[in-house]
């Protein structure tokens, strides 16, 4: 068997208790939710925490419900971080308001993994790389790499930067919906926009401090009026991580002209990439073939996949405009 390193499993009953356990064990502890990312990574000796602090049993981290707005904003849909991807994808509430999110959640991994994996874990997912998600034996034969145990990056071939790929399906959609994450740590809670949550560093690609718990996702209910699309490129129709994920959301006016439009792609670099200058180009125009062409072309120019994933980067790059176009067509036709 592929053995796990030894650890103690803690099952706190509350967020406060979990944060306290983390304070007690410090660097030797990690939070675990569904474990579908962390457990394989531990089996590969990418992490060897002596203490796992389980979040799944904490009631505060559960629930999918609408919260009324404060000071005139329109309220949010709150999704507890420990809700499973199955729950997120099946919940009628999510499907009606944010169909792209339901779709994204329904396309993560395979059915059993979605029954265990959580949305919090998906947002906090470790980055992935062909030189990293391997056994200890394999990585040792390679000579390890910068992200773990080694000195060089085999993708960029320098020692300076890790470019492992952000590979989670839901964050791009959450970004286009203007969602935020609530993080709770020893010094209280803070809310961070998902679009500002990620940083371009493959080693640790989020702004979450290691002792902070992502407690919930909040999606502005106002975003429910946006037209949304989600597309995933992968070689098999199940189980596989994305080679490319595209999320698009747009507000159209009564004449079907674009008021605002957002596109996010991931599966390429260390963080999801918000496609730039879309709004400027598209504002006031209808989403016709010409505009779709223009936006897809912009996406292509902005994306430069690397060999962090073992699949042909040139092809992956060529797929960016194809999938962006399909997503835009979906939005235009929806």
């Amino acid at each position: 068997m592929l053995r796990l390193p030894p650890y103690q499993y803690h099952r706190p009953g509350s967020v406060a208790e979990a944060v306290a356990l983390m304070a007690e064990h410090g660097d030797d502890a990690m939070y675990v939710s569904g474990g579908t990312d962390l457990v394989p990574n531990m089996k590969h000796r990418l992490f060897e925490p002596g203490h796992l602090i389980a979040l799944k049993g904490i009631d505060e981290l559960k629930g999918i419900e609408e919260l009324p707005g404060e000071n005139g904003d329109g309220g949010v849909l709150r999704i507890g971080a420990a809700e499973t991807l199955t729950a997120v994808s099946a919940k009628p509430h999510v499907r009606e308001l944010f169909p792209a999110l339901a779709e994204a959640a329904a396309h993560v991994a395979g059915p059993q993994l979605r029954n265990a994996g959580t949305i919090g874990g998906n947002v906090c997912l470790d980055t992935r790389c062909t030189y990293y998600n391997q056994t200890h034996f394999w990585r040792e034969a390679l000579g390890f790499c910068l992200k773990k145990d080694g000195e060089v990056c085999h993708v960029t071939r320098t020692g300076k930067k890790c470019v492992a790929a952000h590979s989670a399906d839901t964050p791009p959609v959450l970004m286009t919906l203007g969602a935020s994450a609530v993080l709770t740590g020893p010094s209280g809670s803070r809310e961070v926009l998902i679009s500002e949550f990620f940083v371009a560093d493959g080693i640790v690609n989020t702004r979450r401090a290691t002792d902070e718990i992502l407690t919930e996702i909040r999606i502005p209910l106002a975003s429910a009026t946006r037209r949304q699309a989600y597309m995933k490129l992968r070689q098999r129709k199940s189980i596989d991580f994305p080679l490319l994920t595209v999320a698009v959301a747009a507000d159209l006016d009564e004449n079907d002209a674009v008021r605002t439009i957002d596109g996010v792609v991931t599966g390429l670099g260390s963080r999801p990439r918000a496609l730039s200058k879309w709004a400027e180009v598209a504002a006031g125009r209808t989403l016709d073939d010409a505009l779709i062409d223009e936006l897809s072309e912009r996406a292509y120019k902005q994306c430069h996949p690397l060999e962090n994933i073992i699949v042909d980067p040139e092809w992956r790059r060529a797929m960016v405009p194809v999938y962006v176009r399909r997503a835009l067509e979906h939005v235009a036709g929806a």
Partner: peptide, 23 residues
């Protein structure tokens, strides 16, 4: 040019892809 010559590309059932029911 890719890490180390002779190293198995991906010795796992995730990366050595065999078809699922949907494929």
């Amino acid at each position: 040019d890719h890490g180390r010559a002779g190293l198995h590309n991906a010795p796992s059932l995730l990366d050595y892809r065999i078809p699922t029911s949907l494929d």
